[in-house]
Structures are given as structure tokens and as C-alpha cells.
Design a protein around this nucleic acid. Structure first.
Lengths: 326, 326
DNA sequence: ATGAAAGCGCTAACAG
DNA sequence: CTGTTAGCGCTTTCAT
């Protein structure tokens, strides 16, 4: 079924059908209703590829989000919920054989109307690329900042600061920070916040361990670390995400270290399950659904050229549980 | 940049450029190389919307996968890894304001070349819809079977049977099965397998509790259940996924029930973290990445009309850990 | 208010 | 081997 047939059935020209379809003026109410009726009856939907050819708009946005299993889906939900209402589709780019930049270029070639990009591996070339992409298309970054490219960030600096100060306030002053890989921007921020907060409190004795976002690797790194370092040197451990915290707890239990009595521990992300493990895990909670939704809003504003906001900083909440004394 | 310009730069017709682009015969090697060179230099990529208009192929496949956070991403990876190599894109449909069928119809309207559908809410109308969709486009279902529509299934019947028999063999014969919502097809299968296996072993005394795929709801349902039923009635609990198992363990710990001494417990899915919780959780492991990859292969075979296989049943592995005695 | 016609960028006969 | 040309289904001037 195409416009031509609809036009014939209604005894009008295809221009008129087009006008009705696009809700444009210049059609008698009577005619409009008739066309609408036939469209409905025949279940007609215009060919979006023909539309795109003429309008240069694809009503499709591209999304790249890295391999973070635990909240990937929630972010996607936020994005799709917003854009579906606007009748946009979501093109996903997540080929692991390509690097991130290649994934974005792939999306660009698909003529998407805009792109949401959650960088994961940050290297020297990324800023240049982001600038290039941002000039080409409406572009929104998640959890990374570059000049005036609109972005949605989780305020890892503040949340880490709050966590550290919570430890200090409770007299936990021998701290170990277990980070993910430091190619990740959030990791860098959290690390810096951890260090600065301690320095601002005149504490210069602390340890940072670079572990991994893979829980199995993390476990090995942690085990190896404590084979060469005394646990008793620390009364507080801060992990950069919940998985790492879980592997750390697992190790500490295996060597009979009591949490929270001997050492406090906390994570990040507040996964659904962490309130049900033993001990229940103190964690930092960001609304990942809202994160995706906000990114979608920023992108849409750009697409419609009504952009006013450039940066959204997400609210967070620290959920205190038994792993830090209850 | 368009084909016309490339043609001019190479001093050939646009048909020749098209032939080169589509790797067709009928071009002198010399000319082909020249065109290829210019294409590369100018970084030209053909407009896929114009291509689609003529070919009726979009080189895009549609994917609907429900809200299962823990392994959603792995399935997607399997699909994108396969299709990216073929230069296809992935259109994601996941609008929660629409129901599943509406999400599929949305994809259909986008003229995707094929669809991968992981049904979650199964009701009476679904078979008719699947048949309709399967007639329209290449179509692959995950974890559901309908006539000769190609599908990839996790063999929940067999894995559940094996788990149950493992309990029985170890003299755990007072069993409680905690299921997810029964609108889910896999839940139905597992339940049936649980019941049949017991019956085949002449055990008619068992209990099935319908909990929820939401871990918080599950906890409440489990707590409520044990407020009205004695824990000591059971020596084995089988949960339909790891989240439910974790909430169940949490509850049992809160009332000081020793696992595995007083009762065994097991989950499904083998999430990354479950080997690190206490007690480490016995679970059923399916390769979710491969699941997605297989679905992609089946779909591609249909698109290319080389389909031979109709059904792939995934291998599984039961990972025995401390929650069932180690 | 409505229709005719050009054109979006490409592919695929058809000629040569 | 190579070029010409007619669409693909739609939007958008430009007339009427």
C-alpha cells in the first residue's frame, strides 16, 4: 500500500494525502477526515525510506553504550521510552570487533538524526573525535564532559567525596580504594575525588588498587593484593562498583575477616541484589533509567534546535547498609 | 558526497560506480581500482535510504528483548557481533508503553529485513500473532516454540529435570519450587518439568510458589509464604532464577536457617556474581551470548533463503556450589 | 484548497 | 564492458 493508492481511493492527489499525513494546513476538513479514514482502514504507513530520502531526516537515533551488564538495560529503557513517544527508532551500535569510535562512525553512516554516546575506553584521541562528531550531528555524551557538547553526568566526584567523608567521620581513616580499569573516565574521576578528599582532610596515607570491571579478574587481583599486603592495615575499603565489592567481600570472608567489624566496605551502582547479600552492601544509587531519559531529552532538544541546557548532573543517593555498620 | 560526484571524478557513469560499490562484475579491473580509490579518498558511503528505496532491503534487523537486566546485554552482544560483520544494523524496540506485539509491529513498519523476538508475556493471542509475523518477514523466536517458526531455545525442561534429579539423588525429597510469574513461557516449562520429574519418581508431595521476577516483590512473597508455612517441611528449594534465589537465601539467613545444612537451594542463569555470594549458589548456566548469536545465524539464513535448521536447543551446564552442599 | 511535476540518491534493466 | 534511463515512494515547490 502506498500513497498513490490511498490518493486514488480518496479521489484526491497524492499531495493532499501527504499533507494530511504530515498534519499540514491547506486541506478542507471534510477531505482531511476522509483521507484519515482511508488511511486508518487500510492500515497504511508511509515508507520511511522514501520519506528520509526527501526530508534528510530519518527519525532514528543512534546509541552506543558499553558493556555494562547491570544497568545497560535501564539506560536503554529511559532512551526508548522517551523516543518512542516521539515516534523515533533506536539504532544500536555495539559491535565488539569495532572500537567505540568505529561504532559511532557506523551510526553516522546510517544517517541517524542524532547520537547518544557513552564512552568507556577513554584515550587521547577521544576529544578530537567527540568534537568532530558533535559538529556533524546532534550529539549527547553520557558520563564524560567535553567543552560545550551536551552531556548527562553522574556526579562521581561528589558521591565519592560523600562516601569518603562518611568513612572519615566514623573514624575509618586507613582507606583502600579498589578501582576499575583507569582507562574509564568515571574511574579517573572517582580516584581523583578519593585522593583529594583525603588530602583535604590531611590524610596522606592511603592505597589505591586498580582492579577490573570483570568480577573474576577483580577477585584474583584482590586476592593477590592481600597476599602481599596486610588486611589489618585498613579499616575501610571503597569499591568503584558493586561487583568488585562483592568479590572483595567474598575474599575477605574466605579469610575470616569480619565485615563491618574489622573493615567497612562499600560499592557503587546499588544493584537490585546488594541489599540481599551478606552483609548488605552500602552503595551509591543513581537512577539509570532517568539517566537515559535525560540523555534522550537533551538529544531531542538539539534535534529540534531548542536546546537550552547543556549539562545535566544526576542526583545520587548513598544507601547505607550493614557493610558499613548498618 | 554522492555517487554522481564520484562518477564525475572518475570520468565514468554512475552505473559503473554502483557496480563497483556492489561488487558486481562487468567492470575493467583498472576502472574498478580507480573508482575504489576515489571512494576511499572521499570517504564516500552510499545513502542507505536511497538504496533501500530501490532494493526493498534495509540491511537492518529488528530486535525485541524483554526487561531482563542480567543477561539482556549478552544476548544483544551475540546478535550485534554477528550482524555487524554482515554490515547490518540493529533496530531495537523496547518501548514499555507498548505491549510486545505493538513493539513488533513498530519494527515491521520500519521495513526491517527480519526480526528476532524474545517473548516474555505469553497470552492466548500470541500464537496467532507469531504466525502472522512469521509469514511477513524472516522471523526468529527466542525461548518459545511455535510450529515451524525458527527458534532458539534454552532447554529449561531438561535442565530443570537434571536439577530435580540431583536433589532427589541426594535424598532431598521435600521440595519447594519458587517460580517467577507464570505468564512467562520458560516458567511454565520449568514448572511442568519440576512436577513431571517428581511424579516420575513417585513423589507427589511438593509445593510450588509463584513469586516474581522483581527481587523486592519476591522477597515479600517468600517472607509471607514462610510466615504461613514451616520451613522445616522442606529440605530443598529450587528457584527459577538467581535473583529469586538470592532473595530467598537472604530471608532464610534472617531467620537463621543454615544453607545447605538445613535446606538446599539453587538458582538459574548463573549470574557472574553468584559464585561470590554466601553460600555460593548452585545454578544453571546457559551461554547467553551464544544464544543471541545463534538467533542471529538463524535469522540470517532466512534472509538469505538458505535456511536449513529450524530449531537450536542450547547446551546448558549445571554449576554445583555450596548452596547444595558444595 | 488542490494538483502536477521535479527531485531526493540509488539500482537495475536495457542498449550499445 | 559501459552508459542511459526509468523508477523506488515520498515531499515540496509552483501553478492553478
Amino acid at each position: 500500500m502506498k500513497m498513490k493508492e490511498i490518493a486514488k481511493m480518496c479521489d484526491v492527489s497524492i499531495s493532499t494525502v501527504s499533507r494530511v499525513l504530515n498534519n499540514k494546513s491547506g486541506v478542507r476538513d471534510e477531505v482531511r477526515e476522509k483521507v484519515l479514514k482511508v488511511i486508518k482502514e487500510t492500515d497504511f504507513t508511509p515508507n520511511i525510506y522514501a520519506q528520509s530520502l526527501t526530508t534528510k531526516k530519518t527519525k532514528t537515533i543512534g546509541v552506543f553504550i558499553p558493556g555494562v551488564d547491570t544497568y545497560f538495560r535501564k539506560i536503554i529503557f529511559g532512551i526508548t521510552d522517551f523516543f518512542s513517544k516521539k515516534n523515533y527508532s533506536i539504532l544500536l551500535s555495539a559491535d565488539r570487533y569495532k572500537n567505540e569510535v568505529e561504532n559511532i562512525e557506523f551510526l553516522l553512516n546510517k544517517n541517524v538524526d542524532g547520537i547518544i554516546y557513552f564512552p568507556w575506553y577513554i584515550d587521547n584521541s577521544i576529544d578530537g573525535k567527540i568534537k568532530e562528531f558533535g559538529n556533524k550531528k546532534p550529539f549527547v555524551i553520557i558520563d564524560y564532559e567535553f567543552k560545550d557538547i551536551p552531556c548527562v553526568i553522574q556526579d562521581h566526584y561528589s558521591s565519592m567525596k560523600e562516601i569518603v567523608e562518611f568513612y572519615l567521620k566514623n573514624d575509618k581513616k586507613n582507606l583502600l580504594f579498589i578501582n576499575g580499569q583507569e582507562y574509564n573516565y568515571s574511574s579517573q574521576i572517582r580516584k581523583k575525588s578519593f585522593e583529594n578528599t583525603l588530602k583535604n582532610n590531611n590524610i596522606h596515607n592511603y592505597k589505591i588498587l586498580e582492579a577490573s570491571f570483570s568480577i573474576d579478574e577483580s577477585y584474583k587481583i584482590i586476592e593477590n593484593f592481600f597476599n602481599n599486603n596486610k588486611i589489618s592495615d585498613y579499616d575501610g575499603i571503597i569499591c568503584c562498583n558493586d561487583s568488585i565489592a562483592i568479590s572483595c567481600i567474598s575474599y575477605l570472608k574466605s579469610v575470616n575477616v569480619n565485615i563491618p567489624k574489622r573493615v567497612w566496605i562499600s560499592g557503587f551502582d546499588d544493584m537490585d541484589i546488594v541489599k540481599y547479600i551478606t552483609p548488605s552492601l552500602t552503595s551509591v544509587s543513581y537512577d539509570k533509567y532517568q539517566l537515559g531519559y535525560n540523555a534522550a531529552v537533551l538529544l531531542y532538544q538539539q534535534i529540534k534546535s531548542t536546546n537550552s541546557i547543556n549539562k545535566i548532573s544526576m542526583n545520587y543517593k548513598i544507601v547505607y547498609r550493614n557493610s558499613t555498620g548498618g
